[in-house]
């Protein structure tokens, strides 16, 4: 087996192992939490018989290990269980909302990632001159202000005063793509402002690091202009760290949007999770935790795979 295939296989296997461990942690965590699910469903006034019946119905009397495995195998087959509070099938309930979250994250990424990399390249080209300092200052400011504050300010200025975009990001299946994009314009703007600085600064640092190399001097002595040097010779060698930070931010776009979804009343996973945490609906919390963990681990795995593939020494062994 070629070394690169082996490395990739190892990396993927590691991700799967990690996901399995996380599933144990999630399951154990929700068991350790104080309180009793049956009690919280039926309320303080429930009779002991009713509690016992419900416990039996929910399978809470089975040993924890057995419950874990039946939960895990169910999850593997796409069955995440039933919500305790509403009796709804969790997979069905989550599917639409997860789709909405991915939809928002995707379009935020489409705006933020190219913009961040472009600004990073621009900052390198004009290093230590005013464009570099301006880009750094603005992105730093935007990452330092809490996202809900940016959200409310944008909502007030753009939605309420200027009336360019709606203040509440309600979407449903009957809307066309353009209508949906119009509805989520503000959340996209806020998310972009939040993740931009991190990616832009990492791009700048990674490329500047590469710019110290002797082969950059070779490129300059070939008479290439500054953008050709950066784009052709520096960028390909800076891909691994850039992809890494991009993936971390993509993961944040999926997992960390809870606040934004609440601010803009967007029907995504975050809202759903917050609702059910407050109702102590353990199966839903477990399901959301598992999905978020899978997204996080998956994106980081992709980052590592890209880093491995972008290394010519691994791709083309001697």
């Amino acid at each position: 087996m070629s070394p690169i295939v082996k490395l990739l296989a190892q990396r993927i296997a590691l991700s799967l192992l990690l996901l399995l461990l996380i599933s144990m942690v999630i399951f154990a965590g929700t068991i350790i939490l104080p309180g009793d699910v049956a009690q919280s469903i039926l309320g303080q006034s429930a009779t002991p018989e009713a509690l016992a019946n419900l416990r039996k119905e929910l399978g809470l009397n089975e040993p924890a290990l057995q419950r874990y495995f039946s939960w895990l195998f169910g999850a593997l087959q796409g069955d995440l269980g039933t919500a305790l509070t509403s009796g709804q099938d969790i997979t069905t309930a989550i599917a639409g909302r997860f789709g909405n979250t991915l939809f928002l994250a995707f379009w935020a990424a489409v705006v933020a990632v190219p913009l961040a990399i472009f600004l990073g390249l621009l900052a390198v080209r004009f290093k230590d001159r005013w464009p570099d300092k301006l880009i750094s200052a603005v992105t730093l400011a935007s990452i330092s202000i809490p996202e809900f504050l940016i959200g409310y300010v944008l909502m007030f200025v753009i939605a309420v005063k200027l009336r360019w975009f709606p203040s509440v990001a309600m979407v449903n299946d009957s809307m066309s793509l353009l209508e949906k994009l119009n509805a989520i314009a503000l959340p996209i703007a806020v998310l972009t402002l939040v993740v931009l600085a991190h990616m832009m600064r990492m791009t700048r640092a990674a490329i500047l690091n590469v710019m110290q190399s002797a082969y950059i001097e070779t490129a300059e002595l070939k008479g290439l202009n500054a953008f050709q040097v950066i784009y052709r010779h520096a960028f390909p060698n800076a891909i691994a760290p850039i992809v890494n930070v991009v993936m971390l931010n993509l993961a944040y776009l999926v997992v960390g949007v809870v606040v934004i979804e609440v601010v803009f009343v967007y029907p995504g996973m975050g809202q759903y999770l917050v609702d059910h945490v407050s109702k102590r609906d353990v199966p839903v919390v477990q399901a959301c935790g598992l999905i978020f963990a899978a997204v996080y681990i998956g994106l980081n795995m992709i980052a590592d795979i890209v880093a491995i593939l972008s290394n010519p020494r691994l791709r083309h062994p001697k």
């Binding site: 082969y215 001097e217 490129a219 070939k222």
Partner: peptide
């Protein structure tokens, strides 16, 4: 005018 450096190993871009 062109240039040949001391360390070709460092002066070639490893990614190309």
């Amino acid at each position: 005018v062109t240039y040949v450096s001391q360390s070709a190993a460092a002066s070639f871009n490893p990614a190309k």
